[in-house]
C-alpha cells in the first residue's frame, strides 16, 4: 500500500458553511471508495489516498487538482481507499461523491 497526501489552496479564507459527508464506491480490484467531508481547512482542500498500486502520485495529483479546481472547492477533505482504479473511474467517483454531498445537504 502507498499513502499519498495532497493539499490544495482552494479558496483561502473561506469560512466553513456547514458540515456533512458522503461516501461513494467500494474498495475492490479496479475500484475505489471516496469519502468527501466538509471540514475547516481555512478554505483549503486536502486529499489522502491509500492505494494498492504504487508510483502514480503524479496522476493522482493531476486528477485531484483538476477536481478541486473544476468544482471551486473549499474546506473539503477527500479520503480515498483505492484498489487500483483507472483515472476515469476516479473522476467518476469524485463527481459522485460531490453529488452525494450536495444531495445530503438538500
Amino acid at each position: 500500500m502507498e499513502r499519498l497526501e495532497f493539499r490544495f489552496a482552494g479558496r483561502p479564507g473561506t469560512p466553513v458553511a456547514e458540515t456533512g459527508e458522503a461516501l461513494v464506491g467500494v474498495v475492490g480490484s479496479g475500484n475505489l471508495e471516496v469519502m468527501i467531508e466538509r471540514v475547516d481547512l481555512g478554505g483549503g482542500c486536502l486529499a489522502v489516498v491509500d492505494t494498492s498500486i504504487h508510483g502514480f502520485g503524479d496522476t493522482w495529483q493531476q486528477v485531484l487538482a483538476d477536481f478541486v479546481d473544476r468544482r471551486g472547492l473549499a474546506n473539503i477533505r477527500l479520503s480515498i481507499n483505492d484498489g487500483g482504479a483507472t483515472p476515469a473511474v476516479v473522476v467518476l467517483r469524485l463527481d459522485q461523491a460531490w453529488a452525494g454531498l450536495e444531495e445530503g445537504e438538500r
Partner: peptide, 11 residues
C-alpha cells in the same frame, strides 16, 4: 488488512 498490504474500507 494493511499488514497484508490490503486496502481498507471506511465502513
Amino acid at each position: 488488512l494493511p499488514t497484508l498490504g490490503m486496502p481498507v474500507a471506511f465502513d
